[in-house]
């Protein structure tokens, strides 16, 4: 067990854990932020996506020992009240069904729009292709990203 410092949603957390502990479990079990979901544990589904200095990463694949002073943002830190443009677009188009994968979808979409404010359909398809949705909300996800990009909300 080692001591680690993590900066999550602009708050510093001190924790003691095995150095191989994936960031996902530090966020969920040690810190208690349950909005980030465990889907597959092998980086194949995107449900656990968080931002590391603004870049989307699969938190189930990232040992806490490799994180150094980077800022981590989870769904709780995107906007607690749902004011982020992506969250607003999601609500406008009623994207979610069961909702389990949507944290990852929203975090990936938010990162896409930060890097590419006006993405083409192809940009969206490429960037979102690692986020799986069992309910099949893909068409609304795409429309919501287009809506958020046009910033009409």
């Amino acid at each position: 067990m080692k001591k680690f410092k993590l900066n999550i949603n602009n708050k510093e957390y001190q924790l003691e854990a095995d150095e191989n502990t994936p960031l996902l479990w530090a966020i969920r079990d040690l810190i208690g932020l349950k909005g980030t979901k465990y889907g597959c544990g092998i980086g194949a589904c995107g449900a656990c996506t968080v931002h590391l200095d603004g870049t989307p990463v699969r938190s189930c694949q990232l040992p806490i020992s490799v994180i150094e002073n980077q800022e981590i943002t989870t769904i709780e830190g995107l906007s607690e009240t749902g004011e982020h443009i992506v969250q607003k677009a999601w609500l406008e188009l009623d994207v979610a069904q069961c909702g389990y994968c949507q944290t990852g979808q929203i975090m990936t979409a938010a990162a896409l729009l930060k890097m590419t404010p006006d993405p083409t359909d192809e940009d969206i398809d490429n960037f979102m292709s690692g986020n799986i949705c069992r309910c099949g909300t893909y068409t609304r996800i795409k429309k919501a990203i287009q809506l958020a990009a046009k910033n009409k909300l």
Binding site: T36, T74, E76, G82, A96, G99
Partner: peptide, 11 residues
């Protein structure tokens, strides 16, 4: 709309 939509988008 999904009655828990707002909760979902805020995790």
């Amino acid at each position: 709309k999904n009655v828990v939509g707002k909760k979902i988008v805020t995790g």
